[in-house]
Simulated scan of single mutants.
Amino acid sequence: MAVEMKKPSTWAHYKALLRKDLAQELHTKEMITSMGLYALLVLVVYGASLAQAGSELDIQQMAGGLLWVVVLFTSLLGLNRSFSHEKENGCLESILLVPMDRSVIFLAKATANLVFLLIVEVICVP
């Protein structure tokens, strides 16, 4: 009598990868620390450079755009670090061997990055 095994769904793959990324980051706190320091450094550099501009610039008008630049570059840093961490440990090759859609890997990484970015932005925006 043959035992029929069910193939895991795309949703199950996504949840497993997301859980792995979140647990790994909560264990090391490496990515949140680097993203937070980068965001704070960019805010300090913007503040120092715009303070030298004098009164002819309306900084409040530019603040939204500058904040979006911080968010964009911080998210790119986090996404790059999440893939490089997998590559350094040789985990990316094993994840790619699993028969699943490659977009699920990217979506799980992007969702984990979004969670980390929200944590950093809650600290940086005020």
Rank of each mutant, 00 (worst) to 15 (best):
M1A: 10
M1T: 06
M1N: 09
A2I: 01
V3Q: 14
V3D: 02
V3F: 08
K6W: 07
P8E: 07
P8N: 14
P8M: 12
T10S: 10
T10H: 11
T10V: 09
W11L: 11
A12T: 07
A12V: 00
Y14M: 05
Y14Q: 07
K15L: 01
K15V: 09
K15I: 03
A16F: 10
L17M: 09
L18G: 03
L18T: 12
L18P: 02
K20Y: 01
K20W: 00
L22P: 02
L22H: 10
A23K: 12
E25K: 07
L26T: 09
H27A: 09
H27W: 13
T28F: 09
T28W: 14
E30D: 11
E30T: 05
M31C: 03
M31E: 08
M31Q: 05
M31T: 13
I32V: 08
S34I: 03
A39R: 02
A39K: 03
L40A: 13
L41N: 00
L41F: 04
V42E: 00
V44E: 10
V44I: 05
V44K: 01
V44N: 00
Y46K: 04
Y46I: 08
G47D: 04
A48L: 12
A48P: 02
S49V: 06
A51L: 15
A53I: 03
A53R: 03
S55I: 03
S55C: 08
Q60E: 14
Q61I: 11
M62Y: 14
M62V: 15
G64L: 15
G64F: 15
G65C: 12
L66V: 06
L66I: 14
L67S: 05
L67C: 03
L67V: 06
W68L: 14
V69N: 09
V69H: 14
V70P: 08
V71I: 15
L72H: 05
L72D: 01
L76E: 06
L76Q: 10
L76G: 04
L77Y: 04
L77G: 08
L79E: 08
N80P: 00
R81F: 11
R81L: 15
R81G: 00
S82L: 07
F83M: 02
F83C: 01
H85G: 12
H85F: 11
E86L: 12
N89A: 06
N89E: 15
C91G: 13
C91N: 11
C91D: 15
E93I: 12
S94F: 04
I95A: 06
I95Q: 14
L97P: 00
V98P: 10
V98M: 11
P99G: 11
P99S: 08
P99K: 09
M100P: 00
M100Q: 01
D101Q: 06
D101K: 02
R102W: 13
F106P: 06
K109F: 14
K109Q: 04
K109G: 00
A110C: 09
A110H: 06
T111D: 14
T111N: 07
A112S: 12
A112I: 01
A112G: 13
A112L: 02
A112Y: 08
N113L: 04
L114P: 06
V115D: 01
L117D: 00
L117K: 03
L118I: 01
V120N: 02
I123C: 00
P126N: 04
